[in-house]
Each structure stands twice: as C-alpha cells, then as structure tokens.
C-alpha cells in the first residue's frame, strides 16, 4: 500500500476543493460501550451538512471524531478512517494539533476565553501558531469578525473583555475565533441551542456565506433549522447512519421509513 500523500496544492495557494471529508467504517467506543457503528459518509466541500437524530444517536460522537477530540478522553477509542482531502486523519503521521487547526469547532454553549479581550479571543488560534505581527493579527481579526457578522457590533469594543458581549455575540465570537485560523472544515455542535431566536436567526443567516470558506458540519436538534440551513442532511439513529441525502429529499421524500418517522415527528 502506498503511504498517504498530500494532494497537489497550486502554488498560489488557492485550494477550491479543500475541505472534502469522508468517513470509512468509522466506529467509536467509550470503554466497552460502542457509540458509533460502521459509519460511511461522503461530504462535498463547501456545503452545509446537518446531522440530525434523537439524543444519544451518535451525531455529536461523529462530530468529535472529525477533529480528534476523542483523543482527550482516555477511555474513548476510534476505529476506521476519516479522510480529509484524501488523507486519513487517524494516520500515525497526523498530529492532532495540526489537524485541529484545519478543522475548527463551535460548541453548544459559547465558550470564549474569559480572561481575554474580544480581539484576543479571535486571534488566539493564530497566536498559538506563532503569529506575533500586530498588523497581521489585527487584519485577521477584522476579517474573521466580518465573516462571523460581528464586526459592526464590536469594532469599537475590541479591547473589552469577551464576556461583556451578549450570549449570541459570544457565540459569533467563537465562530470568528474558529474562522481566524482559516480552517477547511467547521464543526458546529448545536451552536444555537443556548441562544434566543434572534441570535439563532443571525447565526443561521451566516451559514450560507460561511460555506464559501469552509465545509460546515452542524449537529442540530431542531429539524426546521436543518431544513432551513443545510444542503445535505444525515440522519443518525442508535449509533448508525441511517440515511444521507440532499436536505430536500430527506425532509420530503426519505427513502428509509425510520427517517420518515423521525422527520415527521413520530419519535425523537
């Protein structure tokens, strides 16, 4: 077998098809308990992909496999492959720290760094990679905040503590923080579940433009949200991927009766 090699990258750095993600025979165990069973999935770059399913169905477990966050839990074990741009991220040669710079994550509750200012939160990832140039950091912060639709609200209070922002603003700050390191994939774990409807709407509006930069994978409990925002929807049940397809098809004409039962609200 050939060793995995990086895909050809054009010299000018434009990588239009960056962010192609697929899983092969992915299984996740917590100790003896298996949480994910043989998941095969193929996601197109620059799309918004919703993961739906009842609580405990494995959608968050799947999400956390993509940036190897399970590595932090000693009893968690991952088998199978996840290919990012054709390379298995569980290969020995891959450093999870490097991987996490290519795969950003936004959590259920806003988790800005409480001791840092707004701008320091946004540039935290870049500073971790060793960027020290003030001008570059400032520029990157502005770009990320614009992308996260937060710039206009915070441009006059960049030096204030991040925790002074409202909950919705804090969540967009976390999105900006993830975008600032220019990842290929953005994982979102129920990013609006702790927010009011207005803040939720702002973040949903954002997703359409975010896919220009990244492949978005979003876990949501809210099926209307999945229908509104995603191009593709994956339905998980009891640790298995039941169905993956264009969002329209999943919600109007699913091929699996279990999917139909779930999206029509018969359980979940």
């Amino acid at each position: 077998m050939l060793a995995p090699s990086a895909p050809a990258i054009p010299a000018d750095g434009i990588q239009l098809d960056r962010g192609a993600l697929s899983a092969q025979h992915l299984q996740v165990f917590y100790g003896r308990k298996q949480a994910l069973f043989d998941v095969d999935i193929d996601l197109t770059p620059h799309t918004v992909n919703a993961l739906i399913g009842p609580s405990g169905c494995g959608k968050t477990t799947f999400l956390r496999a993509i940036n190897r966050l399970h590595d932090l839990t000693p009893e968690a074990r991952v088998e199978g492959k996840i290919l990012l741009d054709g390379i298995d991220i569980y290969d020995r040669s891959i450093d999870p720290v490097d991987l996490r710079r290519r795969v950003g994550m936004v959590f259920q509750k806003p988790n800005p760094f409480p001791t840092m200012s707004v701008v320091d939160n946004v540039t935290a990832g870049l500073r971790l990679t060793g960027v020290r140039h003030r001008g570059k950091l400032q520029e990157a912060a502005e770009r990320a905040l614009v992308q996260a639709a937060l710039w206009d609200e915070v441009k006059d209070r960049l030096r204030q503590p991040a925790l002074r922002l409202s909950g919705g603003q804090q969540q967009r700050l976390c999105i900006a923080r993830a975008l600032a390191v220019e990842p290929e994939v953005l994982l979102m774990d129920e990013p609006t579940s702790a927010l009011d409807p207005q803040s939720t709407a702002r973040i949903e509006d954002l997703l359409g433009s975010l896919k220009q930069q990244v492949t978005v994978i979003i876990v949501t409990h809210n099926m209307q949200q999945a229908a509104r925002i995603s191009d593709t929807t994956a339905f998980f049940l009891a640790g298995s991927l039941v169905e993956l397809g264009p969002t329209d098809a999943i919600f109007t004409n699913p091929s699996d009766p279990r999917t139909e039962a779930y999206v029509t609200g018969r359980f979940g």
């Binding site: 490097d98 959590f107 259920q108």
Partner: peptide, 25 residues
C-alpha cells in the same frame, strides 16, 4: 471542560491549554 475543549479545538497543545487557558482562569 468546554473551556479546555475550546482551546484544544483551536489547535492548542496540552501545554498551551494549561498556560493560556487554565492558569489564567
């Protein structure tokens, strides 16, 4: 934990999580 995971997810090493997030907290 979400605070620590936030830092890890951003590509921080264990050492950096301690230095930049945990000790300031």
């Amino acid at each position: 934990i979400p605070l620590k995971e936030g830092a890890y997810a951003l590509g921080a090493t264990h050492h950096e999580v301690v230095r930049e997030v945990m000790l300031p907290a």
